[in-house]
Design a protein around this nucleic acid. Structure first.
Length: 136
DNA sequence: GCCAACGTTGGC
DNA sequence: GCCAACGTTGGC
């Protein structure tokens, strides 16, 4: 089991949209590093969904339901998409400010490489964020 | 192969 | 709205 974090602007596509639709094709990724991460996703992997720019918080957990396949929005084999389904909403969204202040999260890509849109999380990082979502 | 110019992302 | 960081493009 691997853990991931994916970013989206809620004005474009939000966690609420994912819940409403019951499923989403995560397409449109045009960055090689993000693409490489997408290709390593396995069915059943859990993915934090982060709303960038306006909300700046992690709002839910999705689950990979279909592994990488050619991005249907472009006629170019280089780019891949995955399908995800909603898994669990967070009781308390975990804000970027909170993440920055939390011990054990100082090295996550969200802080280190703020423009990467699909990133891996270590299991311990996933656990820390999950605990924040349940306690704070 | 280098690097300047440009476009985009995303935090502030 | 601004701007730093970063990725991509294209001329040389």
């Amino acid at each position: 089991m691997n853990y991931w974090l994916m970013k989206t602007e809620s004005e474009t596509f939000s966690w609420q949209d994912l819940v409403r639709d019951g499923k989403a094709c995560w397409d449109g990724v045009r960055n090689y590093q993000a693409r490489n991460n997408i290709q390593q996703m396995k069915k059943g992997d859990l993915v934090f969904i982060y709303h960038s720019v306006s909300d700046k918080e992690i709002v839910g957990i999705a689950k990979v339901s279909r592994e990488a396949y050619p991005d249907p929005t472009i006629d170019d084999e280089r780019w891949k998409a995955v399908d995800v389904v909603p898994f669990q909403a967070l009781d308390n969204p975990v804000t970027l400010a909170k993440i920055k202040k939390t011990e054990g999260l100082e090295n996550i890509y969200l802080l280190k490489q703020s423009r990467l849109s699909v990133m891996p999380l270590k299991p311990e990082e996933f656990d820390i964020i999950l605990a924040l979502a349940q306690n704070s």
